[in-house]
């Protein structure tokens, strides 16, 4: 059983991120959208979340002019967001 987690809040919302971390399991997928794409700026996300595939919504990354250099985070289109919904069993939208 795998879950797609989405997060739309900036790293300033530490409480929400803590809740997400306490829930996310190995094999789950995380998609960052809206202000959560600011997590891409620092690479510390990859140290906090190991063995979790992390995506960031491409349009939101570009809209905010975020420098996106070779991190483990992958860029995803809205179509890919839909496909991630399809290939996981459950969905949790954190906001």
């Amino acid at each position: 059983m795998t879950t797609l987690h989405t997060l739309n809040r900036s790293p300033a919302d530490t409480q929400l991120f803590k809740q997400l971390l306490s829930t996310i399991r190995v094999g789950d997928t995380l998609l960052l959208l809206e202000d959560a794409v600011y997590y891409c700026i620092k690479n510390n996300l990859n140290r906090t979340i190991q063995d979790i595939e992390v995506f960031a919504l491409k349009d939101d990354v570009h809209a905010r002019g975020i420098p996106f250099e070779g991190s483990d985070v992958k860029l995803a289109s809205y179509e890919e967001y839909v496909r991630l919904t399809e290939r996981t069993d459950k969905l949790i939208n954190w906001y």
Binding site: L33, Y78, E79, V82, R83
Partner: peptide
């Protein structure tokens, strides 16, 4: 918020797929 816009784009993508 961006909710209405993100939801619009997601809905369009879901239909197109």
């Amino acid at each position: 918020s961006q909710a209405a816009y993100s939801a619009l784009r997601y809905t369009q993508a879901a239909i197109s797929l």
